[in-house]
């Protein structure tokens, strides 16, 4: 068994490998001796480096205009209409992108695995392209395209942040999602499952939805989580195309001298994303326990 599963050329593969795959068999359990000085040093350094700014940001976010401390800044998310609207937009984008990713990626991966195993390399290269092209360059290209685009494209595409951003977020998420789902599909006996289902008279759609999907639900959920995280965090394309999404609004708030609010909302975003990924690591583990029984 390989160490990280899919040793894809970029980090995403490792992240997903980490989360989705079983840990490499540890031939000898590592002994835990006296804590070594170098370990302690780096943990202390890391704690200072990473937690001091977080703690500082938390304190900062609690400071109110009147000098006291409180959760007023966190209230902006509910009270301030300028914040709420972009947040709703971002959530909509995240939800729809997540759904599209599943509808699009799962059939693609299954199709490539079953019918076109030769295309695997091609798919891997294509799914890596969004990393080779920096987001800012992608946005630049889009912006120019928008300037010269025919009217109907602008009306149906760029006028709304939803239709303007979702396709590109789905593309941007591809490196994460393709690999996550691919790792999941590779772990099951796809041929047997699909053949059995087809022989029993199921259509392709119901095979996908009722046989394949339940078997790779963790991977699919992982792909969705990563897409949602990406949609809630992406700012470069949204800014260059002048859309009002949540992260863009954060920057605007900061420029309007409402730094406290923007820091508070940042804390919420960080916490939310962390929770998403943290849940994911537990889901991945749960699958490990029950997979054998589910497949037999």
């Amino acid at each position: 068994m390989t160490v990280s599963g899919s040793m894809g050329p970029f980090g995403q593969a490792e992240l997903i490998g980490e989360m989705m795959e079983e840990p490499p068999p540890q031939s000898v359990p590592r002994r835990r001796g006296r804590p070594r000085i170098w370990r302690v040093t780096i943990f202390v350094l890391a704690a200072i480096f990473f937690f001091v700014p977080l703690a500082a940001a938390f304190k900062y976010s609690l400071q109110q205009d009147n000098g006291g401390y409180g959760f007023a800044n966190y209230g902006t998310i509910i009270h301030n209409k300028d914040v709420r609207a972009p947040l709703v937009t971002s959530l909509e984008i995240a939800a729809i992108s997540g759904a599209i990713v599943i509808l699009l990626m799962l059939p693609t991966v299954v199709w490539v695995r079953l019918k076109k195993p030769r295309a695997t390399t091609f798919m891997e290269v294509v799914t890596l392209l969004p990393i080779v092209i920096p987001p800012v360059v992608m946005a630049a290209g889009l912006e120019q395209f928008e300037l010269n685009a025919p009217q109907w494209v602008i009306q149906h595409g760029f006028d709304s942040p939803l239709s303007g951003l979702i396709p590109f977020y789905v593309v941007l998420a591809m490196p994460f999602t393709y690999r996550a789902i691919d790792t999941g599909v590779r772990a099951i006996d796809l041929h047997t499952l699909v053949d059995a289902s087809r022989n029993l008279g199921a259509s392709w759609a119901s095979t996908l939805a009722r046989v394949v999907l339940p078997n790779v639900q963790t991977a699919v959920l992982g792909a969705m989580f990563l897409t949602v995280a990406l949609c809630l965090g992406e700012v470069v394309i949204a800014t260059l195309l002048l859309y009002q999404t949540f992260p863009v609004e954060l920057i605007v708030l900061n420029h309007q001298q409402q730094a406290g609010a923007s820091v508070a909302l940042s804390m919420l975003t960080l916490a939310f994303t962390f929770l998403l990924l943290f849940t994911l690591s537990f889901l991945a583990q749960r699958r490990r326990g029950s997979r054998a029984t589910r497949l037999l």
Binding site: L15, P53, A229, S266, L270, L277, F278
Partner: peptide, 22 residues
């Protein structure tokens, strides 16, 4: 793992603001 994932891939803007706050 989760923390690294958050910071490395999804945290651009919030990270910057925490940094400003500090």
């Amino acid at each position: 793992q989760s923390g690294s994932g958050v910071l490395a891939y999804f945290a651009g803007v919030p990270l910057a603001f925490c940094f400003i706050a500090a």
